[in-house]
Design a protein around this nucleic acid. Structure first.
Lengths: 175, 175
DNA sequence: GCCTGTCAACTAAACGGTTGGTTGCTATGA
DNA sequence: TCATAGCAACCAACCGTTTAGTTGACAGGC
């Protein structure tokens, strides 16, 4: 057998991504996760303590991944929205994961690293506004919220496409 | 006791709105719904067949309510978005209900009346465009999707407010 | 031989759904 | 007017299944 702790954790996390994205936290079944990962249910409790522990760890990793792979570009917010949109197209499970987390946990209990990343982005946008690079029609916080919200247009409609997202943000920030 | 079929159904629907909005479909517990409604669990199965049947009926009613109470105004889309936003502020459970339904059932299985209402709105917007009343920068379908998506800004951020939604739509449709 | 990763087998609790029977309104007919 | 039959509305208790979580035994590398 494998006998590789990290490999087992990775397989569990991948299976959990599938399961939680499809069924949500309440709807997910730990037996299915273990079966998909090809290992025993007890491993989940050995490595992640609980079903919720597994979800939290998974969400932290996934958010971290997207935050790292899509850095903010304050003077190209349409491009930023487009790249976020791309990331969600490439990994639709992430959007579902986040949506379930938001529904079941509210706006509190957002992982600290994400809060920190959010703060940094607001600051970057604020600086770009001070430099006169982008519109001051919205304050920095609202601007970031709007851009992020546009990037998840695919959550609202199956007709969403990259071009629509980019053009929308262009119009939102137009002088 | 009451012994009033319609009143009992109404109490069950109100309790179900609370329960499903808070916990989602998978997370909702029929025992809790019955307890909140102050009546027996068997009534749910007598009147709505199943947990899912209860949810479907509830969603249909709630969607119908908002569709009726917020008619589209093709030549005032910012106002339309604002009034939708107001409706969600007034009844936040509706947004959560719809989000859970969307996550657990996808874009298919949308109640037929809503599909019909959506068609009518696209048509109304298309006509307003033909009349030269609003922008043709987006096609009618995209425009409606964008306006509706802006109205649920509150799903993305706790900072959302009516003015932000209205101003955003104004900019989206600016010539 | 012992630490560590593994798992089948287990449990207690919770779950959606059913059932057999009770309650109270009302229509009927004497 | 009153007895009562019929029936829709209701409910406590229960059923089989599924659930998250536990445990004690076992296997393989050092």
């Amino acid at each position: 057998m494998a006998r590789d702790k990290e490999a087992t954790k990775a397989k569990l996390l991948e299976a959990a991504l599938d399961e939680f994205a499809e069924y949500g936290i309440a709807g997910a079944r730990v037996d299915r996760i273990a079966a998909k990962a090809g290992c025993n249910k007890a491993m989940i409790y050995a490595y992640f303590d609980s079903k919720e522990g597994l979800f939290d760890e998974l969400l932290k990793i996934q958010i971290d991944r997207v935050v790292r792979s899509v850095p903010i570009t304050p003077d190209d917010l349409p491009g930023y929205a487009g790249r976020l949109f791309d990331a969600y197209q490439e990994e639709p499970r992430l959007l579902r994961l986040a949506a379930y987390h938001r529904l079941e946990n509210g706006f509190e209990s957002v992982p600290e690293p994400e809060v920190e990343a959010h703060r940094h982005k607001v600051e970057a946008i604020g600086q770009a506004q001070l430099d006169g690079k982008i519109t001051v029609a919205f304050n920095a916080t609202d601007l970031l919220d709007l851009v992020v919200h546009m990037s998840i247009l695919g959550f609202s409609t199956p007709n969403a496409n990259r071009d629509l997202v980019v053009r929308s943000v262009e119009r939102l920030i137009a002088e």
